[in-house]
Computed example of a mutant assay.
Amino acid sequence: MTGKLHGLGVGPGDPELLTLKAHRILTSAPVIAYPAPDSGGSFARAIVSGFLRPEQTEIPIIVPMRTERFPAAEVYDKAAAEIAAHLDAGRDVAVLCEGDPFFYGSFMYLFERLGRRYPTEIVPGVSSIMASAAALGRPLAARNDVLTVIPGPLPDGEMEVLIGGAGAVAIMKVGRHFARIRALIERLGLLDAAGYCERVSLAEERVVPLAAVPGDTAPYFSTILIYKGAEAWIHALPAGKTDNAS
């Protein structure tokens, strides 16, 4: 009998958004793996740090934080081999993933390597998009609205086509692309329909209309939500809130 592989969605940052099932598995698994940058701590681990036990074995998966491409396959090959050794020894392994494991989650790369070889369970987590809509105080979409999720690194041309065909839009991974994306949204006449959500569910959460955001940069953990669908009651943007008073 081998151990079981668990992909745990740990949500956008607030530990209280961890599901009961994820908490049960997290606190009982003998081995915990998680992505970590090559400098600084792991955000996924930080979310659940209050629930970890000293006797649990930890496997940090070091993923270089670079704008240029790096040999990601080698990173996940190495991590998969280390995790497989524990599974072969009969030990369950819980892999932490910010947000949801199968929604732009890093766990999918380990699932590709291990999911067909070992018993595997995926525990969904609260996506940052859902948490952002809740923080903004405006529904994502309604009735027959088409919700389109757009990665921030996409070029303007592709992004414009996607926005044009959607009733509601969520733009993720904004970060260093913020100035370009905001300029595109303004050019499309949608600035007043866009909300900006930064570090949602964390103590330093910042949620404001996009038009009110100063500067040309944004952290990686930021999302822009746009509504241009048919429901008039969704269009109004709340005044916004900011917990870091910036």
Results as ranks from 00 to 15, higher is better:
A170N: 04
M1C: 15
P37M: 13
R182N: 04
E74L: 11
L210Y: 02
L184C: 12
D77R: 00
T242P: 13
S128F: 04
T27L: 04
D100F: 02
P155I: 09
T2S: 15
S128Y: 10
A218R: 10
A89Y: 11
K4Y: 11
A46W: 05
D100R: 02
Y109W: 06
A80R: 08
G240K: 02
A166D: 01
L52F: 05
I171V: 08
I61M: 09
P139M: 06
T67P: 15
A73C: 13
L147T: 12
A211N: 02
I181V: 05
G215A: 06
A141Q: 00
G125A: 11
G195C: 08
I122S: 14
D145P: 12
L136R: 02
G99N: 01
P139I: 00
R66W: 14
G152L: 00
G115E: 10
L87W: 05
I61C: 03
D77Q: 02
A245P: 11
I59A: 02
I226C: 14
I150L: 08
E82T: 07
K241E: 15
S132F: 03
V126C: 08
D92W: 09
D156L: 05
P71D: 13
P124A: 12
L237D: 01
A168Q: 06
G229T: 05
G152A: 02
M159E: 09
L87D: 05
Y118I: 10
G115Q: 11
T242S: 10
S106Q: 10
N144E: 14
A166L: 09
A239S: 15
T217K: 11
P54Y: 02
P139F: 06
L114H: 03
P238G: 06
A84R: 11
V213N: 01
P64W: 03
G115C: 11
A131Q: 05
P119H: 13
P71T: 07
S132T: 08
G9M: 09
I163R: 07
A134L: 03
